[in-house]
Amino acid sequence: MDMLVYIVNDPNIRWIILGCMLLGLSSGVIGSFMVLQQKSLIGDALAHAALPGICIAFMLLGVKSTAGFLIGALIAGMLATVGIRWITEHSRIKQDAAMGIVLSFFFGIGVLLLTRIQHSGNGGQSGLDKFLFGQAASMMRQDLYLLTGISIVLIAVCILLFKQFKLVSFDRGFAKGLGWPVVWLEQIILLLTVFVVVAGIQAVGVVLMSALLITPAVAARYWTDRLHIMIILAGIFGAVSGAAGTVSSSMVSQLPTGPVTVLAATLIFAISALFAPRRGWLARLWQHRRNRLEWNNKGGVSHEQ
């Protein structure tokens, strides 16, 4: 309890909690569109692909620079998506397998580069080792500004282009028939995802970043049949997970933020899957039993007395 009071009173930690909540909010919102487009794993591929991009940016610049990391991750993410598309178009390999190949290849290179950086002169201060599993406490004020900026842009774009994102996610062919630039709209969603991934890597880590994109969205889907409510809920679930992860990792020293955040998100998912009205497991069980009872009372077909 004392610990909690200390956390709430520490302005630094308050800022970090706020940052992680913004991160969870943004990834919940953009993750909803990714999940509905059945592209959940693209987020995972982008996160893993970001690692070598960040490492190369660090090696070129020699300092930890958020802008540099962003550009590096962006280029690596683009290369990864192009690679996935190239493999699926030029071979019989399906998209999931292509993603697996590209994702692990980029991650392998990333870990190699990371090891090199660790053993080099200024590796100690780089803090890049935290990028694997995340350490929200290592976030600095400027990282928070970046996160805030990204969240505002992302939410503004999602509100402005809600109609477009909805139709592209539901019925791509129809959107194309209307003459909309569907490929560009999909690229915007992808770009926003890369932004969130890069901003989130420091807090959650490349390995688990995708969980923050997928899990809150999937949990939110259980509670509603309306898209905008699903997106708002996913944002809230993401924010709560982010806050839970940060608070617990600042209470226990050396506890990485990523895993705790993901566990919190998974707990929300489990609660949703079990208890959500209508779509949840208990509701379905209840409905099933009631149907059976009703059927029996009506004296429908009964084969044994």
Binding site: L36, F170, D171, F174, R221, I229
Partner: peptide, 16 residues
Amino acid sequence: GYVPQRESVDWDFPTN
């Protein structure tokens, strides 16, 4: 006006 094949979309999409 265009009517695509019904199977071309995911009908579990959250909408009415």
